Simulated assay, not measured.
Amino acid sequence: MEAAGRQRARATITDVAKRSGTSIKTVSRVFNDEPFVRDGTRERVLKAAAELDYHPNMAARSLVRGRSFLIGLFYENPSPNYVVDLQTGALDRLHDERFRLLLFPCESARAMSGKLLQVARTSGLEGIVLAPPLGDDPRTVAELREGRMPFTRIAPTTALDASPMVGIDDVAAAQAMTQHLLSLGHRRIAFVQGDPGHASTGQRLCGFRAALAEAGVAFEPALLEQGMYTFESGLAAGRRLFAGRMRPSAVFAANDDMAAGVCVAAKEHGLDIPGAVSVAGFDDSLISRVTWPQLTTIHQPTYDMAHAATDALIALIDGQAHERAIDLPHRLLVRGSTGLAPQG
């Protein structure tokens, strides 16, 4: 009973060498990705390691090779749903990789401006993934380039040749959502903007206004509300929109968190969704699928963007070929929160 209850001892490199019929040095060469190891030998070592549930000590490997194998994900976004997709995409790309990920939530791009390179070097990072809006800060981009720190960016809108980048067409995506609302007969469509410090805010407003102009519908400044990409700001914007007599028949919020807040405001005012008012969001984050009715939204492939940016960073660090600009598709997802405009 004592033996059965005792925790199984952790496998060592010696155990792997014995199981695979190789030397300790050969096992070390396999896990350090060194050349001139025969394919059959490499397969034997990896098979033995899997059977023994052996995992090499990353700290020891770093000391031997003089490298940290650490990369950093820097982000500033108030939406927890967006951040989860961001982190998961980067972490999944690093599964079974020699690199490990450190997370750096930032108060704001402005507060981090001019300090990011120092943080990266102090942390021993070999490379950086910048999430918006950090990738649009000119001082940050300049210091990383001058410091020769490998970096990639997600959804930048400036200095597009400064680093590998991954993104979608925010203007076209917002235009598609607005066209959907127009096709349902809506003409009084409100728009809830995101954080003015994020470039996506202006791009999505641009797409919204372009779709209205194309349909010959006048833009009404009174139907433009300021949000901050948070649920609370969406709730406040919705309360303001629904308090007046000339309320909108549809509300397009620039992200799902704000759209969920608008939905709560509508219910506070006794408005049926989508019978009395349609509500649409942007991102296709988890909150869009747990609200009721589920949100009509734009699928922004945040997970895939982070995955691709991390992949490009590894290639950049290793001196391998990589794409400079990766454009990923968006999709309009029509769900229960949008319907025909109410009569009258």
Rank of each mutant, 00 (worst) to 15 (best):
L333Q: 13
P329W: 07
R44Q: 11
A50T: 09
D96G: 01
Q179P: 00
P301M: 04
A250M: 10
F31G: 12
A172C: 07
F219E: 15
A222N: 02
T291M: 14
A210K: 13
F99I: 05
L340N: 05
A308Y: 00
P156F: 14
L91G: 02
L102Q: 13
A4R: 08
M165I: 03
M58D: 06
E225P: 00
G197A: 15
T140K: 07
Q193V: 01
Q294P: 00
R6P: 00
E97K: 03
G185R: 00
L333K: 11
R324W: 14
I24S: 00
S183E: 11
I24H: 14
V37Y: 12
V141M: 11
Y229K: 03
V290Q: 07
D169V: 00
R247M: 05
D304N: 14
G72E: 11
A50F: 04
G227A: 09
R19W: 03
D283L: 07
L125R: 08
Q118A: 14
R38V: 10
A48T: 06
A60F: 07
V290L: 09
E2C: 01
T22N: 05
L182T: 02
F219C: 11
A155F: 13
L295A: 08
A111P: 01
L160Y: 11
V334K: 10
L328A: 01
C106D: 04
S68F: 11
H299N: 15
K47Y: 02
L241H: 04
M165W: 02
A120P: 02
G339I: 03
V45H: 08
G275C: 01
D256W: 12
T178A: 10
S108K: 06
Q193K: 13
L235V: 03
L235R: 04
G147C: 05
R240I: 03
L340G: 05
R65L: 15
P138F: 12
K47P: 01
S79A: 14
A3E: 13
F191T: 07
A155W: 03
G238A: 04
P80W: 13
M112E: 15
G114N: 10
T178E: 08
G344T: 09
S28R: 08
A341D: 09
A59I: 14
H307Q: 08
A254N: 09
A254D: 10
N57W: 12
A173V: 04
A109H: 10
D53T: 06
P105H: 14
V171C: 06
I314R: 05
T152C: 14
S23F: 11
T140W: 11
S123I: 02
M1H: 09
A50Q: 12
L182Q: 06
G185M: 10
R6L: 12
A9L: 13
L125F: 12
R38L: 09
A210Y: 07
L223G: 03
M165E: 01
G234Q: 02
L103G: 12
A210C: 00
M149E: 06
V37A: 03
R209C: 09
D327H: 07
S62K: 10
S200P: 04
T201G: 08
A321M: 01
R245C: 00
P138I: 13
P248F: 08
N255D: 10
F151H: 13
E43G: 04
L130Q: 04
A49S: 12
E76K: 02
A213F: 02
R6A: 15
A48C: 10
T158H: 15
R93L: 11
L333E: 15
Y303T: 03
I298H: 06
H95A: 15
A211K: 01
A325M: 05
D136I: 05
V141L: 15
Q320M: 09
